[in-house]
Design a binder for these strands. Structure first.
Lengths: 104, 104
DNA sequence: CGGCTATGCCTAGCGTGGCGAGGTATGGCG
DNA sequence: CGCCATACCTCGCCACGCTAGGCATAGCCG
């Protein structure tokens, strides 16, 4: 991972994955790794607490399932989550623009 | 500032300003505010410790001066600082690319 | 002169959050 | 039967942004 500069964008990333459809923790990690072409290698200790936070905030909802004898908690984006994703993405883009203005 | 969080890119920003020439703390804050068009409003409690960190790491060097009766510590990027800036900027760009791949 | 504001620097400590390390449990393979 | 992958969870460290405080000088306005 690029030196931990993940700083507080985890929520945005999780919502970014979840907006394509429900997924469970392990799958989210894999999806992040693939989509970023290896750029993101999130630790479990990072995403599970983050998912709990998002659920607490009503941005995602989860349901416990059992597939192939394995316990899974599948997360899905809520309507509020979709709105929040758009808002945070806009914010992120503004942030990037500001960064570019200083370092480009 | 957009939700406060600078996401640990303060060092990169400081070097981004300093690469145009030496400056002192207050001027750096002003420069950041102007270049980012108001996007960045760094607190003193953010930049002074950060500048000390950078100096500790040998990426900037400072000298105490007196201008118009006021005490100023002027910071300048070192050669190592310039290299580090380039490296961190590259890293940042990779990070942005990864982010885009997930949320765009 | 007296007060207010801007300039300028600094630091103690709080809160947040990423993440390493450890724990639990099942399925499948050799 | 070990071992690894899948799958979830949590404790606690630590880095770091930032609030809140403190200090000092210059300059303006009345």
């Amino acid at each position: 991972m690029a030196s931990g500069s993940l700083k507080s964008n985890v929520d945005l990333l999780l919502m970014g994955v979840l907006r394509h459809g429900p997924a469970h923790g392990y799958a989210i990690i894999a999806s992040l790794r693939e989509r970023s072409d290896g750029g993101f290698e999130l630790a479990e200790g990072t995403i599970y607490p983050a998912l709990h936070r998002l659920e607490q905030a009503g941005l995602v909802e989860s349901s416990l399932q059992t597939a192939q004898g394995r316990r899974r908690r599948t997360y899905a984006l809520t309507a509020r989550g979709r709105k929040e994703f758009s808002a945070q993405r806009r914010e992120w883009q503004g942030f990037v623009a500001s960064m570019e203005a200083v370092i480009a």
